[in-house]
Design a protein around this nucleic acid. Structure first.
Lengths: 336, 336
DNA sequence: TTGTACGCGTTATCAG
DNA sequence: CTGATAACGCGTACAA
């Protein structure tokens, strides 16, 4: 069933059928009703490919995520779910592209074939080949996360610098004097991954401002590494009384390490940081932390992208979110 | 840049350009080279929408996942990542549709607009409105998971019945006489969710066959619930020496409950089951369990779908996987 | 208020 | 071996 057949059955031209459906041109009420009845009887739906071709837009956005090899974290999963939901509210479908490096097949297919009206990039790096590619090709895009010098593109990000500093101040206010930062993996820091480097900057600046004794350590994104790092850290520096972490995947290991070392939380040891709400709630005791507002970030990213698609010439917009630290039960004054 | 312009610059017809690219008709070497050079210079890429229209296929598959409200488990995330990767190997893109209930916007958009050549359904239910809808509309589909009476469609599934039985036999062989099944949430069982009901059936049959004292309990998909369920279970029936679980999200809670109750694993208590490898490895001690072969299931699902797309009339195929139980460190003979 | 023509890429067909 | 043409299916600028 196609629009021509509907037109034939309704005794009108194809354009009249199209206008009756879109309302972009006046169609007499009688004609419109007749057309709609025929459409209803025939169960006609416009073909998306033909529509995309004629309109010059696909009503689809691309969502670029790290390839399957690198394990997706629950936060990234949250972005995917949130973006798909938000896109649905804008009547947009989502094409998933697992692309990391330079010339990625699925990424190229999507861009070159103009399969999408815009792209959302996640896990953006300092020099991001995908962002450069999108700029060159003129496809509107928004990134979740930003890098310095990326002012040209729109982005949504978390103020890791301010949040890490906020955590430091919280611990300092409670009376902690010797604290540590449990950061993301070393490679992430080295490759200029924003959250890792900005958390480090915020932590360093705030501990200096409060004259705290500060240690920082990188940690792979898994529980075993988290356990090892914390055990090593407290063996080397037993005087540490609190940890700020931005590595949520390490949390179960942090919990285990502290238990094994007899550092009861929060009586003898405080833990805080920036993590997904799920992880904060699963921690024992529940973690006092800035919850990553995954859904809000996804919403804003889609919103920004929808804007850039409809007005590509408008100036880029930047959204830097700074959620509050949710007081739960993992921080307290240090034991004397 | 379009194919007509390429044809003009190369001094050939549009069809020759197309044939030179696809190889579906012989084109002289000289002409072909000239065309390819022009294409290269102009940076021409066929428009995917126009190609989809002409070919009558989109080179895209739909992946239907539970909506964002219901938390996605790491296994589901694994399916998404695995399917996207496998689809990429078939030169297929993936359109994500978070759809659960009856009339879901994004699902309808995808099906009615013929935006996809086929669909992969996950989290399939006993009477699945989406499966019925796909059957009616004639869109090829494959489901991950199956229900009785769904013989008409192709599917890939895990033999939860055999796997649960295998876990029971493993515990029975070690000498356990009183064991329990920690199942998925009660609503899942009630709504005819296959893995939950088949695990229950396999567990029940095997414990009966081995004359074991068996208890079964449902458990919401989270750690806190897991802890509560296990604590309640062992308070009511302290003689239980082993647990079979198909609820991976509950595992961190299971670990906590056993520790609190002083049931050292595996010396005093055994734990086994069917869970994603990641969860098995994060458990302390590492969990002896049948690892859900997420990647293989994703591969097979895409493969089956590719077959159904190319030969829709061919009979449906069913793949029932039964991975081995990986011996790690969480089971041992019961203490005397 | 309605109809016509165009654009997009692939492919079958007919004609060289 | 190559070219020309039409059809696929839609939205929409433009003409009537």
């Amino acid at each position: 069933m196609n629009i021509g057949e509907i037109a034939r059955r309704a005794g009108v031209s194809r354009s009249t059928v199209s206008y009756a459906l879109s309302g972009k041109r006046a169609v007499s009420e009688v004609t419109r009703r007749r057309i709609l009845r025929v459409i209803d009887e025939a169960g006609y739906r416009p073909n998306a490919s033909a529509r995309a071709l004629a309109e010059g837009r696909t009503r689809t956005i691309g969502l670029v995520i790290p390839p399957a090899g690198r394990r997706l974290t629950p936060i990234q999963l949250g972005f995917v779910a949130g973006i798909v939901a938000a896109a649905g509210r804008h009547e947009l479908d989502v094409l998933l592209s697992p692309s990391g490096g330079e010339h990625d097949r699925s990424f190229e297919r999507i861009i070159e074939g103009r399969r999408v009206d815009g792209v959302i990039l996640t896990e953006i790096r300092l020099r991001d080949a995908r962002a450069a590619r999108l700029r060159d090709s003129g496809v509107p895009f928004v990134s979740i996360g930003h890098t310095v010098g990326a002012e040209a593109g729109s982005w949504v990000d978390l103020d890791y610098e301010g949040l890490a500093a906020g955590c430091v101040h919280h611990l300092a206010d409670l009376g902690h004097r010797v604290i540590a930062l449990l950061n993301r993996p070393r490679e992430f820091l080295d490759s200029g991954y924003g959250p890792a480097s900005r958390a480090l900057a915020g932590f360093t600046a705030a501990t200096a401002a409060r004259s705290l004794d500060a240690t920082t350590v990188c940690c792979p994104d898994d529980a075993t590494a988290g356990q090892n790092r914390v055990e090593d850290l407290l063996a080397a520096r037993p005087e540490i009384t609190g940890i700020v972490t931005v590595n949520e995947a390490a949390l179960p290991g942090v919990e285990r390490a502290l238990r094994r070392l007899g550092r009861a939380v929060p009586a003898l040891f405080s833990v805080t940081g920036v993590v997904g709400r799920h992880w904060a709630e699963e921690f024992h005791p529940p973690l006092t932390a800035a919850d990553v507002p995954v859904e809000e970030m996804a919403d804003r990213a889609v919103e920004l992208l929808a804007e850039r698609i409809s007005a590509p010439a408008a100036p880029a917009r930047h959204v830097l979110l700074r959620p509050p630290i949710s007081l739960r039960a993992s921080t307290a004054p240090p034991s004397p």
